[in-house]
Design a protein around this nucleic acid. Structure first.
Lengths: 115, 115
DNA sequence: ACTATATTTAACCACATGGTTAAACATTAT
DNA sequence: ATAATGTTTAACCATGTGGTTAAATATAGT
């Protein structure tokens, strides 16, 4: 199996498929954070955190600015757009289904009234 | 490591992090399909396809109706809603950033005009 | 120069993932 | 009853994942 999450969507969805990484993104919504600040809520080594951040970076969801020995991470939510747009297709699909359902129910109601 | 993708979001994003499974969902947009129909575009065994479908099922994205020896799969796009909603938060975030940028540019423009 | 701080990298481990083939299961057709 | 069809399950394999600890790297403070 030769799988490198080369595809951007793969990388993005994979990055999001983990509560730790989603938590980190949420944490970054309130602004730039250093690696250790990001690590703080989690009971795991910095080495592990470092890897999580790297995945977020590879997926383009997080950007890093190195200043001396400190690494500042910030959210790049814009790069979630592709994945969001992908899902949007399905949102339309399920809304379409609901619209159809609604139409059917309305039709049923009219049926009753004229009975 | 004890990870079971118990969380619904985990399961959903994980299911989506694979081109094969995304392809299957896309294929189901045009209507119900049997397992072998779903498998047809892919150069892999039915056994492998079966496992992919199961993941989509566990994530609640696909539902199965067994009729005799044939299994009919259909899309349940509605169960993508949670993941979509999760991303929506971030869409607002990046739109907010764009709005802010726009505001800044406008402010700059006004600056120039009054100069 | 020495030490402390911030972080990554390397080597390792247990378990997950995505594939395979072969066999089992369930249903339909002959 | 036998054979063919549609699908899953079991056993297996190579590689990926998410964690660990220990060492390396880079910078800042004394």
């Amino acid at each position: 199996m030769v799988k490198h999450y080369s595809d951007r969507l793969d990388a993005t969805f994979h990055a999001l498929a983990c509560p730790t990484r989603r938590g980190m993104l949420a944490s970054l919504m309130s602004g730039e954070k250093t690696v250790s600040a990001l690590a703080e809520p989690y009971a795991m080594s910095l080495a592990a955190v470092s890897k999580h951040i790297k995945k977020l970076e590879v997926a383009g969801l997080v950007e890093r600015k190195v200043e001396g020995r400190t690494h500042y991470c910030r959210l790049n939510a814009k790069n979630m757009a592709e994945a969001h747009a992908w899902m949007e297709r399905y949102r339309r699909f399920w809304e379409g289904k609901l619209d159809l359902l609604e139409a059917l129910l309305e039709a049923e109601d009219r049926e009753k009234e004229t009975k």
